[in-house]
Design a protein around this nucleic acid. Sequence first.
DNA 1: GAGTTTGAAACT
DNA 2: CAGTTTCAAACTC
Length: 741
Amino acid sequence: MDVVSPELNSLLPDEIMDTEAITMEEELPVEHLAAPPQSEPEPPQVPMETEVPEIVSLCPATTSMQMSSASTDAQCSTSSGTQLLLNLPKISSVTVPANHQLIINKVASAPAADGKSPGTAVLKPEGQKLLVAGLSKTGQPIMLALPHTWNKPATTQGTGDAKAQPTQIKMLTTVGKPVIAVSSASQLMGSSSTLQAQQLKTLQITKKPTVSTAGPMITKLIITKALNNKGLSSPASVAPVVTGRVVTQSTPVTPPRTITIGETVSTVPQNTSGNSKVAISPLKSPSKLTVVSVASQSPNSPQKSVTLPLNVALGQQILTVQQSAATSPAKAGTSQPNAQTVKPVQTVGGVGTSQFKTIIPLGTPPNVQQIQVPGSRFHYVRLVTATTGSTTAQSGGSTNTNPSIQQAKPVMMNAAVRMSVPIVPAQNIKQVVPKPLTSAAQVVTTSQTPQRLIMPATHLPQIQPNLTSLPPGTVLAPAHGSGNMGYAVLPAPYVTQIPQPAFVTLTSSSTFSTATPIQTQARLSLNGYCDCFANGEFCNNCNCVNCFNNLDHESERLKAIKACLDRNPVAFKPKIGKGKQGESDRRHSKGCNCKKSGCLKNYCECYEAKIMCSSICKCMGCKNFEESPERKTLMHLADAAEVRVQQQTAAKTKLSSQISDLLTRTTPAVTSGGGKLPYTFVTKEVAEATCDCLLEQAEQAELTTQPQAVAERLILEEFGRCLRRIISFAGKAKTDCPINC
DNA sequence: GAGTTTGAAACT
DNA sequence: CAGTTTCAAACTC
């Protein structure tokens, strides 16, 4: 069984979160769930994840899409096609007729006015049709289409110049099959009083290949919210992300389809998949953050001694957590990876096989599956409990008197874990003495040093598994409750600066007392929170006054960390997560709140990170969206400037090289006072290099659409610089070799 | 480099 | 959750 912690995803970097609910695990077909083959235990499957770089605008920013669960099995079983009926802004119904159409209906304000349950399939006459392509096993393309009403001019208020965005029709492909997605910005405002257009919506369709020939084929349709819903006056904007899923089971004949549309209200997609993925994304300093997954003891399970051999690596960190089953005696020091349970899994990308994400089995300990996504700097790890223990499905009771609770449960970080922690042989892992169950903390132990308290894992309720949001069939190995599963964010330098090679042993502890006025102490001790602290670094050569952000004041620092995490559990989480498909997928975790800068200055964190503002931003007058002409201009100028610098640098380097080469020659020279005259250095090569510089200058001027006069001036200035360099070299040569030259 | 602007974070 | 305050970074001159 997979350990699923949806809340964990809220802590995950955007590499994962940015998948726009990609990890919304697909429910297996009913029959599969109902009668899993006993003799053939389904191996933990990493769901096919696709980050189709497709952006689809589907609803107004104020839309609060409620993904209907109406795609009942009955519907699916009686439908040969795939049709989803969604309501915008609220989706109240889903129908699956036989035409492979996905219809999204827009409901004005009474989503259940007809008295039907949300699950009732209702095809609104004014429904907006979304045809999903490429979902049919038979190969019949299912395409997305927009109702004509979506294309009508936006009725947005305000200037609307930069907000009226053109409709974009893009092609999506699900496993090689096309999906036509339509991205309409302000045209999709509908009844919303949105002042600004939604920018982007992501349509994600994922298809999971069958495990076997008769196995289920799962197709995910994920429709995520629009970006740039700033300026919304409607409170409905609390649903920035809408996630729909299409779970399709393929059968040899007309495949009944189970279509499930879920909703992700939070912009931080929750992973309800059976996979627990822990990945750490860099902020500005990739190595500054360390996320440690803490598996504390379950009331009904043996206490887990968490041993985490960590590898040192800069940049991305991978975190692998192994959780042994309750029936497996805890054994500390298990260092040799056992890959027997690791199975290669492929994650199907949206566009052909090129985007397939292959999960490369690595040498991992038992029950640990590492997921490596090509092209991604992040590594995903599945938390897989041992399959031997049928008692792993625990209810999370808190009154466990089982003596086995004192057993240590090893949680190991794979050797491939890239963290800023010295590598330590796993056999040196020291088992941690069980602690009371009422609290949890991270304790660092080393083979040489006493246990070191790093950071409390308590007070992180947001990462407690949410049982209600788990997909069917999910079993939480450690029952959620008082500190069963804790995930703590560790400032990496805090770990790295531990003198000895260290293990981070995570266990429960009551070391931290919330009764302490930590916050006040932290502020005083740390002199506020400087960037070093925020980045998880120790202060070094900064301007801090009475700085306590160092090892000399470790206890104060610990308290400050805890205080920060108490207030903001993701305080040390990178604000900007990097998407898998590149920078364009990066997203600010919180969104900016700019008001005057138009999000086109570095005041804006989104702009500073060179990412678009998203729906979670609360900025006003945002111009930092894809179609913004202002932004394009800035980007164009910035790119042009960068290119210019590079070209000029190259040209000057060439010129210098030519001059230097000339100086090395022993050519007869017309000497004047013992040296060459400057003009003697203007050889053919030098002249060509100079011309290159001038041409580059001219091209840059043209690229930046400079007036002719300005262009001429720039060229002349460049020529002057070239001449000066020639003269300078000549003088240098004259000085350096007055005799030979 | 000083003064101003800006926005994130802290605070209420 | 919204408004206010603080303060350091970004920006301008």
